[in-house]
Computed example of a mutant assay.
Amino acid sequence: MAGRPTIADLAKEAGVSVATIDRVLNGRAKVREETARRVYEAAHKIGYHAAALIGQRMAADLPKIRFGFVLHKEKQAFFRDMREAAEAAVRAATGVQTSVEFAFASSQAPSDYAALIEELGERCDAVAAIAVAHLQVTDAVTRLEARGIPCFALLNDFAQGVRQSYVGLNNLKIGRVAAHMLATATRQHGDLAIFVGGHRWHGHELRETGFRSYMREFAPQFRTLDALVNLETRQLTYEATLNLLERHPNLRGIYCAGGGMEGAIAALQELRKPGEVSMVVHELTPESRSALAQRYLTMAVATPLDAVLTETVNLMIEAVQNGGNSLPGQQFLEPQLYLPESV
């Protein structure tokens, strides 16, 4: 196209009339969002000088939604990745003007999660959170919902019957997947250990239930030890794994149903050769990727963060615009399974 693109050039590229272009540019009459977006994309494509103005006109007419996210352990790689996925999902949202705010819980205390959820509820139109299952958290969600602020549970379900929806993995099923992998990979019969972050993490409890149900049904030759609470900390998991290896010389497998896997990996690297003890963990991090490559891990079950946060943001927009859901639900997404040969 020779010279500076004109309104006629833009109209031709967008497949609309010159009058429609004039309405988009000057806001003289309402233009459908789909049409305005087509004009905006065409303006960018041909280098029309008022493309930025068209974008501003579009944004001015869109409803504003403020998103709030409560996450856990700000310094952990997984939760940094989760924040980035949430930011990307909010940026990609169409049909609304968006802003997003994050808060991070520094402990597993229910009061901390409840306070952060309510704090974000004061400034946001919808809140999604990772939180423990506890009455204080349920009460906080109840107060938000009563004010018309929809709340969503991420990865770990809480406030069932009150929150809008749970978005994450099917944790009962994931526990059975982990059990199948350990039972299949372990060549000798013996003991199996489970680490959970705490008994208030509903998702960890479901993973343990699924794990044990599979073992009872298909691998009764293994003995599954009592679950160990590691508070999702590296050091506690490291010390507990050293103790397990000392007290249970026939330990054949470990399932880390939550965080803290780095400690178990370090203990195995000190005291066992690769593959002597099979281990399944959650999430693909630099540490778990390295351990898979070295054969200290049998499998890592990863959360599809992009899909989880995209689904959550879409549900948040729908709840804000439609006044919430009458029937709280669950949105299960498929996990990503990583083996030593797939990293």
Rank of each mutant, 00 (worst) to 15 (best):
A153M: 08
A153N: 03
A153H: 01
L154E: 04
L154N: 04
L155S: 11
L155Y: 06
N156W: 07
N156R: 09
N156F: 08
D157P: 09
D157V: 03
D157S: 03
D157N: 04
F158S: 05
F158T: 03
A159N: 05
A159R: 06
G161V: 00
G161L: 01
G161E: 07
V162I: 08
V162P: 01
R163S: 11
Q164W: 04
Q164F: 01
S165L: 13
S165E: 14
S165A: 15
S165F: 09
V167K: 02
V167Y: 05
V167C: 09
G168Q: 06
L169G: 06
N170W: 05
N170H: 14
N170L: 11
N171E: 14
N171P: 04
L172I: 07
L172Q: 00
L172M: 05
K173C: 09
K173F: 11
K173P: 01
K173G: 02
I174V: 14
I174P: 02
I174K: 02
R176I: 00
R176A: 15
R176M: 13
V177T: 11
V177P: 05
A178Q: 06
A179N: 12
A179M: 13
H180V: 14
H180N: 15
H180D: 15
H180M: 15
H180I: 15
M181R: 14
M181W: 12
M181Q: 15
L182P: 04
L182I: 15
A183Y: 10
A183E: 14
T184Q: 15
T184C: 12
A185D: 09
A185Q: 14
A185H: 08
A185G: 12
T186C: 15
T186A: 15
R187L: 10
R187I: 14
Q188R: 14
H189M: 14
G190C: 05
G190I: 06
G190H: 01
L192S: 05
L192Y: 07
L192W: 03
A193P: 03
A193F: 10
A193L: 11
A193M: 07
F195C: 08
F195E: 05
F195S: 03
V196C: 02
V196P: 00
V196F: 00
G197M: 05
G197F: 02
G197I: 07
G197R: 03
G198K: 01
G198N: 06
H199R: 12
H199A: 12
H199P: 07
H199Y: 12
H199N: 12
H199V: 12
H199G: 08
H199C: 09
R200P: 00
W201I: 08
W201K: 02
W201H: 10
W201T: 07
W201Q: 06
W201L: 09
H202Y: 12
H202K: 10
G203N: 12
G203A: 13
G203R: 05
G203M: 10
H204C: 13
H204K: 11
E205A: 04
E205N: 10
E205W: 00
L206D: 03
L206I: 00
R207N: 07
R207T: 09
R207G: 08
R207W: 01
E208V: 07
E208M: 04
E208R: 03
E208H: 00
T209D: 00
T209S: 01
T209G: 00
T209F: 00
T209W: 00
G210I: 01
G210R: 02
G210F: 00
G210P: 01
F211M: 11
F211E: 06
